[in-house]
């Protein structure tokens, strides 16, 4: 279970990204975070695995206070959380297989992994993740040879290889075209359903969020202004979150 208690984040330049956020996310949920850009979505997401340290408050995962741990224990926590990025963040010059294998790097002591030596189970696990994502045949192709949608699947396979309880996705489909967007979102839904992995995703497109997520969290100026089922969302709530009616680029439109 993931829990935010009075989380405040102030950046060194004085910007208050989070102003007292309280949240509880249960295991197996598919949560979409929506809001304007700059509302604090990205900070909220990155506070979960402490990619961004918070100023005050508590972020708890299964009873562990993320905000206080560091070093080895922080890395242990991070390896149990998958993360997906808007720009895929693959090592473009490496093969797809090696990129996926990166999900296992934190499970071993540094020495052998530095030379690129991984146990056979790990390699198999990496390939199984690729198989799950349906791109097993691309295993030994360089990552930059793939299309955007395929690259995001490689990133998903990398996250799966970590055997995570939770996957954080920061605008996972924002740089994809509409068709691949739907495919990748289907993948997220499948992972959530088949493996019971909790998914917390920042979404730019509101209609996608409503379609795939079971729960919506609306953020405005660093505070949670809506938290509920996607079926409860109506136009008034969207105006509360966005402070205006939606722009056409914020819906995918189908």
């Amino acid at each position: 279970m993931l829990q935010f208690v009075d989380v405040i984040k102030t950046y060194p330049n004085g910007v208050q990204a989070l102003r007292g956020v309280n949240l509880k996310i249960a295991d197996g949920e598919f949560v979409a975070i929506i809001g304007l850009s700059g509302a604090g979505k990205s900070t909220l997401l990155r506070a979960i695995n402490k990619m961004i340290p918070i100023t005050s408050g508590k972020v708890e995962i299964d009873g562990i206070d993320v905000s206080t741990i560091k070093g080895r224990r922080l890395r242990m926590l991070r390896r149990s959380i998958g993360m997906i990025f808007q720009s895929f963040n693959l090592v473009k010059r490496m093969s797809v297989f090696n990129n996926v294998l990166m999900g296992r790097v934190a499970f071993h002591s540094a020495f052998l992994t530095l030379f690129g030596v991984f146990p056979k189970e790990d390699k198999l696990l990496a390939l199984q993740s690729l198989d799950t994502m349906g791109i097993l045949d691309k295993a030994f192709i360089r990552a930059d040879q793939l299309s955007g949608g395929q690259q995001q699947r490689v990133a998903l396979a990398r996250a799966l290889t970590q055997k995570p309880k939770l996957i954080l996705a920061d605008e996972p489909v924002a740089s994809l075209d509409p068709i691949t967007t739907v495919q990748v979102m289907d993948d997220f839904a499948r992972i959530n359903r088949d493996f019971g992995i909790t998914i917390v995703a920042n979404m730019h497109h509101v209609d996608l969020a409503l379609k795939y997520a079971t729960r919506i969290i609306g953020i405005r100026e660093g505070t949670v202004v809506f938290d509920g089922l996607s079926s409860e969302i109506n136009d008034q709530i969207l105006v509360d979150i966005y402070g205006r009616s939606l722009k056409h680029d914020e819906v995918l439109g189908e």
Binding site: K123, L124, L127, Q128, D131, L136, D137
Partner: peptide, 8 residues
């Protein structure tokens, strides 16, 4: 049929 074992 590609299986992870074969690909490995």
């Amino acid at each position: 049929v590609l299986t992870p074992e074969k690909v490995l």
